[in-house]
């Protein structure tokens, strides 16, 4: 399996930064960076990461199931993550999530038919004092209201 030159560069650095013989340490970061490019963690990627990190595919597979950001099925081009944990809950996080469901017509960890959007109700993502918070891919949005989120989604749709 080959990745983009940029990613290969990141991986090359990654594999060097741990003590001698500890390439297994790169498993988690390698998976998440690769997922961003490949779209999901499939069997081929598992085997590739295993090969590069010198572990068994099972050892990689175990990790994939554990971390909630790693997905075995592709998410949308824009992965909308709405926090409903306590700080967000108190200021409308759940209502925001409900409205996002309606707007996108999909539920938790589902993908729109055109593959553009996916939705996930997530746990606290460290934006509590600027709640309710949404993260789209890796971009944070603070003090989000249903209206703001709808606009955001519309602008992403238009950007295509």
């Amino acid at each position: 399996m080959t990745f983009s030159p940029q990613l290969e560069e990141i991986f090359a650095k990654m594999l060097q930064q741990y003590p001698e013989g500890r390439t297994r340490s790169a498993v988690v970061p390698m998976l998440i960076y690769a997922q961003d490019e490949v779209g999901s963690v499939n069997r081929e990627l598992i085997e590739e990461v295993a090969r590069r990190c010198k572990v068994t595919p099972l050892q990689v597979d175990e990790v994939v199931g554990y971390y909630s950001m790693l997905h075995r099925k592709p998410m949308g081009k824009y992965h909308v993550q709405v926090c409903t944990n306590i700080s967000c809950l108190l200021v409308g996080g759940e209502e925001l999530y409900e409205s996002a469901k309606k707007k996108l017509g999909i539920g938790h960890k589902q993908v729109t038919a055109d593959g553009q959007f996916s939705l996930e109700e997530v746990e606290c993502m460290g934006a509590c004092s600027w709640a309710p918070a949404v993260e789209i891919n890796y971009d944070f949005h603070h003090f989000v209201t249903p209206e703001k989120l709808n606009q955001l989604i519309d602008s992403l749709k238009r950007a295509q």
């Binding site: 099972l58 597979d61 909630s68």
Partner: peptide
């Protein structure tokens, strides 16, 4: 051999075999 591992997390954790 190391053919068995642990998959998933929390209450849905389960034992998994090496070939998926």
């Amino acid at each position: 051999v190391g053919a068995l591992g642990i998959g998933n997390r929390g209450v849905i954790s389960e034992i998994v075999p090496n070939q998926g």
